[in-house]
Structures are given as C-alpha cells and as structure tokens.
Design a binder for these strands. Structure first.
Lengths: 198, 198
DNA sequence: ACAGAAAGTGAACGGTCGTGCTCTTTTTCC
DNA sequence: GGAAAAAGAGCACGACCGTTCACTTTCTGT
C-alpha cells in the first residue's frame, strides 16, 4: 500500500500544477495521465472520479499553503515580526513556489467563487481559518488591542496587496510590483501599530 | 446587414456572462447557442471560429469597462474628485454590473495571464492604457506632482483594493468588504495628497 | 516464497466538443 | 416585388471527454 500513496501524491501534484495554469475544470484526466506517466484508467485506482481528484487537489493545496506560509511564522512570537514573516512567506509562495503559474489558491478562488459545491466550501473554510488567525495577529499588534473590525480592515488590505502583486507581476509584467507590495504592507503595519489616529 | 449585428451582440453578451462565471475556456458553443436561442452552426455565421468569438468577448468587455468606469469620470475636472469617481464606478462595475458572476476582467486576467496569445495581449494592452491614465491622475493629485514611481505605487494599492473587495465579497461573503475598500481608498488618497512624508 | 491484494494497461462505451457541409428561411436593397 | 445576400437549421465528422471492465503486472505481508 506504499507505492500507491506515492503515485497518488504525484498525480495530485501534477494536477495542481496544471490547474494553477489553466484552471481546475480545464484539466483533463488525459493531460494528467500523460504528465504523470500513467494510463487514463490507471488514475481510477487512486480516485473514484474526477470530482474526487479535484477535491484532493484543493485539499492538498490548502494543506501545503498552511505548511509553507503559516507554519514557519508560527514559531515566532506574536507581533509585528510574525506578521512580517507571514507576508514574506506569502510573497514567496506566490512568486517562487508557484512562479510559472501563479498562486493556485487565487486561481481556485476566482474559479469556484460562484460555483457552489464541496470544493468551494472547503476553500471557503480554509481561507476563513487563515483569515481568522491573521485577524487575531493584527489585533495583538497594538497595546490597546485593535477592535475586530479594525483588524479585519487591516487583513483586508494585507490580502489585497498580495492579490495586487499577482496581477501586477503576472499580467502587467511590473518588475517593481514586489517592492510596491512590500512598501504598502510596511506602511500598513506602521499606521496600524500606531496607537491613536484613524 | 443590421439583424446580424444585433445577434452578434447578443451572442457576445451571453458568452461574456457565461465566461465571467466559468471562465472563457469553459464556455462551449453549445451552451452559448442554447442561451441565445440559436443552433450551434448558426454561431458560425457571426464568428469564424471559437477563438474568434473569444477575442470578440475580450474586446467587448474591455470596451464596456472603459465606457462604464472611465468615461463618466472623464467629464469631471482632474484631481481627487475624478479619482473618487473612477473608484466608485469601478466598485459599481464589480458589485452591481457583474453582481452574479464577479468582474469578468478579473476572471480573464487570472485565466489568461500565463497563456500567451492575442487575447492575453489585448487584455494586457487595455489594462495598461487604463493604468497609464490613472497613474497620471495620481501624479496630478499633489502640488509638487508625485513621481511616476509614487503614482504607480498609489495605483497599485487602488487596484489591490478592488481585487481584495472581490475576493472578500464573493468568496468570503464579507458584507463589510465594500466599506473596508472604500475606507482604504480614502485613506490612500489622504496620505497621497499630503505633501511631504513617505 | 507464495498467495492475495494493490497497481496499472488497453480497449471500448456514450457523450460532448468544435467545425464543415448542404439546405431552407428571412432580411435587405433596388 | 423579386433577386441577391445574409441568417440560421440540421446533420455528420473526427477528436477528446470521463468512466467501466476484463486483464496483466507488480508489490507486500507472512
């Protein structure tokens, strides 16, 4: 039962990389089979249907996102340093780990946001947990802690800069985008950590 | 030759709405034909191929974006009021005009950003022109005008907030997102218009 | 080492895809 | 109002889609 798991992993990995480029729906079993070096029918020893495979891709991507972006920052003490670490890893996730295709979560979000179903639900839940954790980090950033609404607004901006970076780099080819994103985030931290004013 | 143009318009419109939901690649000619009330082969009297139709969709969407978002603001005098008008129309474009599907340009951008070809080129060009216009608006916002780099950074944030709003509303179901986006944009204008500090 | 399970193949299925073809209906122009 | 052109219908095609099934090969536990 060992070999199977390894193959299953390779299938998911290939499918995820294809999905990050063309979208999950546009990935055919034939394409995946070819990339991974299997026959189409061989895939069905690892997934009971294409929907099943799609779900596995979404789950795996979300899992890896947590490992890659959140986990390394978790070791740091809460506060500005931890938020900066998350942002830095997040940039790295989008710009290096998925350099050829762009962040698959972004692709999946746009693809699934208006298509109800278990995959959308899973994505929604995962993003919600991540957002919740970051909102708490933002709250703890200031001595009289930020209200939840303030922290949510800060997360909104943080997330926006990541999205903006992807478009600027991938579609517009803007080489300065990473600098812009980093600067915008640092300025956000500055004015969020500052105690009194709006 | 009149009837044909009207039908062509209806085809493009239906195709665009379907594409905003599922993505342009995932729209089949059969689907479009059914929605518009034509036979599949009838479509070929208006487009020489599916690629041709895809291109027409992209062109039309970009054209309408200009009419809807930029044109109403153009009548205003340059300055903060015009930028606010653009932002407001942009929100309206995303949240009302394409309420059921989300902004098609966002969908197209994510779908095409790593798929070279004429459609991507067209999208790239259109977005570039729009960005250029807004960058100039930002430059004129302050009395000693902003450097181009500063203005680009400001546009980067403006665009980011629009992207962030879409994800927050459509995927996360965040009802406060529109308020967050507006507040973030106003704060951006405040600190951009202010003369001296970084 | 050998039995049984797991992993993988190849052919075939019904369905849908984009596209060409011929043919009929409708519109447009003088 | 009638001829030419445009708009559209219907059918058939080859290719590919996801899935099934019977079969062979490879691995794994004892």
């Amino acid at each position: 039962m060992r070999k199977g798991e390894a193959t299953r992993g390779r299938i998911i990995d290939s499918a995820a990389r294809l999905a990050a480029v063309r979208g999950l729906t546009a990935v055919s079993l034939g394409d995946v089979a070819e990339v991974v070096g299997l026959s189409k029918s061989g895939l069905f020893k690892h997934f009971e249907s294409k929907d099943d495979m799609r779900m596995a891709v979404v789950e795996t991507v979300m899992e890896r996102f947590g490992e890659f972006v959140w986990k390394p920052a978790e070791t740091r003490p809460p506060g500005r340093g931890r938020l900066e670490a998350v942002f830095e890893r997040w940039l790295h996730w989008c710009e290096s780990e998925w350099a050829e295709s762009g962040c698959p979560i972004m692709q999946l979000t746009i693809e699934l946001d208006d298509q109800p179903g278990p995959t959308r639900d899973y994505l929604h839940k995962g993003l919600g947990v991540f957002r919740g954790a970051l909102v708490r980090e933002f709250q703890a950033l200031r001595d009289p802690p930020l209200t939840e609404a303030e922290a949510k607004a800060a997360y909104f901006q943080m997330r926006s800069f990541i999205l903006g970076l992807s478009e600027a780099r991938r579609m517009m080819g803007d080489a300065d985008a990473e600098r812009s994103a980093r600067a915008a985030f640092e300025a956000l931290l500055d004015r969020t950590a500052r105690p009194a004013d709006a």
